[in-house]
Design a protein around this nucleic acid. Structure first.
Lengths: 372, 372
DNA sequence: CGCGCCTGGTGACACGTGTCACTGACACGT
DNA sequence: ACGTGTCAGTGACACGTGTCACCAGGCGCG
């Protein structure tokens, strides 16, 4: 059945290496883990062990190692369902690299969409939803979601929930119960018991509206994505916009705000532009530069002048903002570096006793161009 | 030192569950794995076990399970360093979801950039680069890169290398030696011993050039990204463009081709546009719609008319292509669905004896708009 | 009673690793 | 000769799980 040429019986173990080198398994372990301090092995023996390991293509079994060690050095990060923006991807990538430099193995795992197989395990049969009703998977309180169980099974050193992933307090409890030393949520929805890195998207909305008000605009539309997946990012930005006018930051408190749902299609934008005159707005803050560019184009096609009739500001300062005419003003988001984040995670893993803290990790600034 | 309230001593094991339910550990295992067929446990006992497990918040230890089982159901996919386009992200996400429905645990792991700690293990100390010189990590032949070792340590059921990740034959050998049942590379660079899912980017270049030639253009520029990270995608597209003219597809063989490096900045685009008249081109194929939009804007600013003076075509059919004036023609890429891919992986895992095959998984078509 | 069958469950082993405690062998100082 | 110390290395256990082989007791049947 199996091809005898390529796939030999089973992966080599440290016992195989020991046999080949003519030493004990303990010696192999000492040599390969480079523990200078704990044992003294002669140079000749070391060489023999290394040679044997290389010849056999020996690679230690991570599962066995983690089992013995009790604590693994794995960091789990939730991967977003919806392809998020480039900054987001950059942050995730930076964090990953920095953590790896600190000796962690980083894995991005999907944050389970709704309705998948109730069997998270290794030997589960895909088609079966579980005959024992809700007793097995649904957990104790208000529904520990199944993906968190999968996370807990891996016994990670740290778990990082990136938006739009949300963790319930029950999730956090389960993870901590499974030995996770640091549970970190990124974003404003704070969860009891978890550390959090606040990247408060509300500040983006506040900064945008403050900028518009400062320029004398008073009737502000706010474009919110019609796509459901982006809610986790969009809602805080809208909330921030509202907060800014409530505080009356900058100018008078006579600012009016109108939410404008918009899908990422030309049709949707054209429809919005068609009813523009009836809205009576003199400024608009779009969730994103992508939405802003889309709307800007539709407005211009409909004869609305920017910035004379209406000021437009986007967010995230994407390249696209610089390619429109007029060039698009944008809220620039500068987030913590991946190295900082990694250091924070590492600190938490080392001293898990510390009570949950919050840390700000984002600064925003307005890049003013020609559209406002 | 540790907070006695939140983090109790150690995660509960199946032995704890057994003690609490007043049964043996074997019974717990039978009940929790739902093995109807293998053992007969009374309903009352089953209920007691489930209750105990829920009360304790018991979650099985994946490492121990994998160790015992020998083979895990984990699929490793390489995560690109550079944030690739939205289609790419979509494919990766689709594949992940589909695999999870088949009962696999999918993890994206970074495909190690150059120069990191030589210590892949669990107990490695981050700062130390390894005192034993090159003997330990560098492997046997031409440098098995360290990240592949990390992959092999996890003993995945399957490993998927997405571009720009490349696997050497030595890498493939190492993985197979570690028990990986399916090693799959995606993209044209075929590797001996590995299965591959060819998503041949050359077809994109061929289709674009064929379209331009069909419209009567003869002197074609090809924009290639100056960013090094995109080489894996860009080079094949350029090669495909060359191949198209070599074959003389469509029109005469008198087509001339000029590569045009371009960075994703306004300055770079302006510089290229400035020397445009000297190039004497009547058409341009850009690696990507992003680059195409950037160049289009720069050309228009420099007084070059599109499509009268020069035809412009991009690729990937992004939203941005529809927002320019004139609207941008683009090569649309339709890749295999995530479900298909997952089924392929599953098939390979089940019967690893099959000799490496190749499978096409991409179709391209030209969406003609106003810029050509 | 002896024997076999079924129900409901348990004891023990193996998976591969890291590390503590220990062992010979040899040198040295008194 | 004896205690002490160092060198080079080994034996054995524990980590948590899945599963094979076995067992106690009840019951039917000859």
């Amino acid at each position: 059945m199996t091809d005898p040429r390529s796939a030999s019986a089973s992966p080599p173990t440290s016992a195989d290496v020991a046999r080949r080198a003519g030493v004990s398994r303990a010696t192999v372990s000492y040599v390969l883990n480079g523990a200078e301090s704990s044992a003294r092995i002669s140079e000749a023996t070391r060489a023999r062990v290394h040679a044997a390991a290389d010849a056999l293509g020996y690679v230690p079994h991570a599962a066995a190692r983690a089992l013995r060690a009790g604590a693994s050095r794995m960091v789990l990060m939730s991967a977003p369902h919806v392809p998020a923006g480039p900054l987001y991807a950059r942050f995730a990538h930076e964090a990953q690299s920095a953590l790896r430099l600190l000796g962690y193995t980083v894995a991005h795992v999907a944050a389970g969409a709704a309705g998948d197989t109730g069997i998270p395990g290794v030997t589960g049969i895909p088609g079966v939803t579980g005959d024992d009703g809700g007793t097995g998977a649904s957990g104790n309180e208000d529904g520990t979601s199944v993906d968190v169980r999968a996370w807990a099974e891996l016994r990670p050193a740290a778990a990082v929930a990136l938006p739009p992933t949300v963790l319930t307090p029950a999730d956090v409890t389960l993870l901590k119960r499974a030995g996770t030393r640091a549970v970190i949520t990124v974003g404003p929805p704070r969860v009891a018991g978890a550390h959090s890195l606040t990247m408060d998207q509300r500040e983006v909305g506040s900064a945008a509206v403050a900028h518009l008000v400062e320029r004398g605009r008073r009737r502000v539309g706010v474009v919110v994505p019609a796509e459901p997946g982006l809610d986790a990012f969009a809602r805080p930005r809208l909330a921030g916009a509202h907060a800014a006018v409530a505080e009356g930051s900058g100018g008078g408190a006579d600012v009016r705000m109108t939410p404008l749902p918009l899908a990422l299609t030309e049709e949707s934008a054209a429809a919005l532009a068609a009813r523009w005159p009836a809205l009576g707005l003199d400024a608009v803050f779009a969730y994103n530069d992508e939405y802003a560019v889309l709307l800007l184009r539709a407005l211009q096609d409909a004869g609305v002048r920017v910035p004379e009739d209406v000021a437009v500001i986007g967010a995230d300062d994407l390249l696209a903002a610089r390619l429109t005419r007029p060039r698009l003003s944008s809220v620039r988001v500068e987030h913590a570096s991946g190295a900082d984040f990694a250091a924070y995670v590492d600190e938490l893993v080392r001293s898990p006793g510390a009570r949950p803290r919050r840390r700000r990790a984002m600064t925003v600034s307005v890049t003013a161009r020609d559209s406002t």
